[in-house]
């Protein structure tokens, strides 16, 4: 379980904190989504988890252990993170790329062992990339590349998984396949934290949504509570409509066209 406890993050020289008093839990076996407008502090929470945004107050714990007191290697053994962007300097094969997920488990000189190979093979299988093992990463489509990055995170073999907008650049089918994969991962008992702009998808897959606005938590609860037209309209500053999808029963957000002045 990942717990953000009264977290305040301020970048050096910034007048206002990027996140202030943010608290929420990411429970084992379910997907928790963090949503909010651009600049609301979503990615900052992930960067703080990576030790790349300074924690001014509060704490982030994984299974009760404060990550501020842990080496990055130890953190990487309990929580895997798929950062928002990544631009590797050199191409590798998909297999080699996924194997880098085992870095935190490897010693300096020992070659990868049976456990590492098994974790990588399982990750490739789960993400449907087994047939792509020998493909070069610079030859992949946007969707294949995102799946490869998720596979690397799965290969880390952690109890918690964090993804920062993993569905950008994905078409509908790849997006759905990714969310189904995250759902299956959560069902295995993994705590999944998902940063996303796709409110409608999130509402169908997450058991809990944390809505951020201006670095503070504006709402926190099951999708049915957070997907409230009045609330979202106020936070996003755009006229919205929330209906219920007749086929699947999930709340659906529809942004409205602004009326042209008469």
């Amino acid at each position: 379980m990942i717990r953000y406890d009264r977290v305040r993050i301020r970048y050096p020289g910034a007048a206002v904190p990027a996140a202030d008093g943010v608290s929420f839990d990411v429970l084992d076996g379910s997907i928790t989504a963090v949503v909010g407008p651009n600049g609301s502090g979503k990615s900052t929470l992930v960067r703080a988890l990576l030790g790349r945004a300074p924690l001014e107050a509060g704490s982030i714990t994984v299974d009760g252990a404060d990550i501020a007191a842990m080496a990055r290697r130890e953190v990487a053994r309990v929580v895997a993170v798929v950062p928002q962007r990544e631009d590797p300097a050199f191409p590798r094969t998909v297999e080699e790329f996924v194997a880098l997920g085992r870095y935190a488990h490897a010693s300096v000189w020992r070659p990868h062992g049976a456990a590492d190979a098994a974790a990588c093979a399982a990750a490739l299988e789960e993400t449907g990339l087994a047939a792509y093992a020998d493909r070069r990463t610079d030859e992949l489509s946007g969707g294949e590349w995102q799946r490869t990055r998720v596979a690397r995170a799965l290969a880390q073999g952690t109890r918690a998984l964090v993804l920062d907008e993993p569905n950008s650049f994905l078409d509908v089918a790849h997006e759905m396949a990714l969310f189904e994969l995250l759902d299956a991962t959560a069902r295995r008992g993994v705590a999944v934290l998902l940063i996303s702009h796709q409110l409608n998808l999130v509402a169908r897959f997450a058991s809990r949504i944390v809505l951020l606005a201006g670095g503070v938590v504006a709402a926190d609860g099951p999708p049915s509570d957070v997907m409230d037209a009045a609330l979202l309209e106020r936070i996003y500053g755009w006229p919205l409509l929330v209906s219920r999808d007749a086929a699947v029963g999930a709340p659906v957000l529809v942004p409205l066209r602004r009326r042209a002045p008469l």
């Binding site: 080496a71 290697r73 130890e74 990487a76 050199f90 870095y103 690397r152």
Partner: peptide, 14 residues
């Protein structure tokens, strides 16, 4: 060589 955020995620003190 993957980038600073990815390296931190994989366990390197960047």
């Amino acid at each position: 060589s993957l980038g600073d955020d990815a390296a931190a995620a994989l366990g390197v003190e960047v």
